[in-house]
Design a binder for these strands. Structure first.
Lengths: 340, 340
DNA sequence: ATGAAAGCGCTAACAA
DNA sequence: TTGTTAGCGCTTTCAT
């Protein structure tokens, strides 16, 4: 069906070695021969099989990508950042998603290793204590983490603790005193922990009480009534919510809207991620923005640098700057209106 | 570095053939031998290289996926639908995005073919007149299109014409007479054409004037002033907008909001795609919903059926039902308030 | 300038 | 039950 180098050789009347030369070192072959063989290649529509090359110990030009989910645009944006560069560099991407499941993480990494990828770009639930990553280190398979905010491994990320700190400080500067942090599926992840840490530090520095993060199951796309009540009633209800990601912030905004709470007048909202989509909301969502696409492309560049040994790459964590998008979901609170 | 079947054989003291049997037909090998070799496999952490198998002419268990972009969640959702099944079936996915560029489409398909994928799942700009797809047909490489709404090729899609027709009829039923269709990047695609056709038919059937689609460059994330003026001023300004996709609808909503137009009171908006995110907007976006994830998984099932020859699969187009999500972005218009 | 042949990791037919 | 061997498509010495 698919023509091989043999077919070309037979068709052109030369040996497969010469055909190979036409492909890989055209200058070493007689111009006349070159011409003939090229014609055969065209006629048969021959494309050298990467399989054969790869097996020969050549480079596979394959990179594995492991992401939690594509339902969250954060990761879709990263992937787009990776793919643009990969295509330009002539690499192929093999993609697997894990749905935040440790078994699927393990399985994905094993599958990709077996496929002999030259490197791995991944986002895992918890980077510090990840036995599989230790294994990669030990076996010398190159990888770069995205969004995993760890100093122990090669990673590209924002400083989650500092970013949360900055964001919550901004809320405080707007006069908020009772600020609650909401977290979703990320509760089990290193990122969420660091974000809560930043929140707690900002609160503490202002002499305010930091509360544990309120965990939300937002797969339901719906705010549980108990949670809603917690947010909206009582004299100690929060005036601002710091949501550990934008998707969660959107779910919360919608829940509040249904409960006839005005954002930002009755409640200020700050998200985390900087989804492009957030700017299209009304009101546009205030968010701590990670440069997601840039994180993807930076991860790619680091990985390729290590694969090509073109750079020493001594450092482990690469921290990209975060930005505060001060959308319209944050209102200032006058001191008098606060009971605290 | 990576152990091969030879290493295992040497370590266990058997031939590579027996090791191969342990992997592929354990019951044909002496239990004692089995045990020993398995221990060696574990010790060396050996995983059979798919490359070797694939080269042997075994199946590659590789599926190529070609999508326009991941920045639009429509495609991310499809991909998620594919990936879930692919992982469950033990297939690997090779992903390439095209940014709606014909050259990149061509390059992606060629690259994936060269990699010997067993099949292709793709969304192209224009399916009917696509020479590369003809080539795939000719060469017997299996593929299934997603979202490309054509009767000529294997495809999974909603009926774009009918869906648009239904949606616009709904707008008409709400009393709207001056309805404009807005289209974005998709203007060059078969989907956009069919959607406009459905719009025009609905208008015509109601005795109303169908206008050409107003083309919007929404990469800017911003509505051009001229467009905005066209939508908001004059006695013949539209009372409802049918947007050819949800992302575009969001940009428009935001533009109107800035221009102090109330949605839906001053302008009704209907999108197309049914992005999960749309429901989180305030007001929730009315949309003609395609079951994106389901389109992805259906495409996967069709492709696998053809690869396994497990089903005859005579039909070409598989049309999945669309649904109307009647969000709060559509208001009824009383006849008296209409000048038409 | 070209060809012959070995070998990459694996499977399967055939031998023992 | 186990081993020997050929061959999948390709690159790369080593001869010619």
């Amino acid at each position: 069906m698919i023509p091989t180098i043999k077919d070309v050789a037979a068709h052109a009347g030369f040996s497969i070695a010469t055909v190979s030369r036409v492909i890989n070192a055209p200058h070493t072959v007689n111009p006349l021969t070159l011409e003939k063989i090229r014609r055969s290649i065209d006629t048969l529509n021959f494309r050298p099989s990467p399989l054969g090359r790869q097996l020969r110990g050549e480079r596979t030009r394959l990179i594995g990508v492991v992401l939690p989910t594509l339902a969250n645009p954060v990761f879709a944006e990263c992937l787009q950042g990776i793919d643009d560069l990969a295509a330009a560099h002539g690499y192929r991407l093999m993609l697997m998603t894990t749905q935040y499941d440790a078994d699927r993480e393990r399985h994905a990494i094993e599958t990709l290793r077996a496929q002999r990828v030259e490197g791995l770009i991944l986002t895992v639930a918890d980077a510090d204590t990840h036995p599989l990553l230790d294994e990669l280190d030990r076996d010398g398979l190159l990888y770069v983490l995205m969004h995993n905010d760890t100093a122990r491994r090669p990673a590209v990320s924002v400083d989650n603790r500092l970013a949360a700190f900055d964001g919550v400080r901004m809320l405080i500067a707007h006069g908020h005193r009772r600020i609650l942090m909401l977290a979703g599926t990320l509760a089990a992840s290193d990122r969420a922990r660091l974000r809560h840490l930043g929140y707690a530090e900002a609160m503490q520095q202002a002499g305010l009480a930091a509360a544990p993060a309120l965990e939300i199951d937002f797969n339901a796309n719906e705010l549980a009534p108990a949670v809603l009540a917690h947010l909206t009633t009582g004299p100690h209800r929060p005036t601002a919510l710091f949501c550990s990601n934008d998707l969660l912030a959107m779910v919360v905004m919608r829940g509040l809207h249904r409960a006839r709470m005005q954002v930002p007048n009755d409640m200020s909202i700050l998200g985390f991620d900087g989804l492009a989509m957030g700017e299209l909301l009304s009101p546009p969502l205030a968010s701590i923005c990670a440069p997601n696409r840039e994180i993807g492309s930076a991860a790619w560049r680091r990985l390729i640098a290590r694969i090509d040994r073109s750079a020493p790459d001594t450092s482990l964590a690469l921290t990209l700057p975060h930005t505060l998008r001060t959308g319209a979901t944050i209102a200032a609170i006058s001191n008098t209106s606060t009971t605290a």
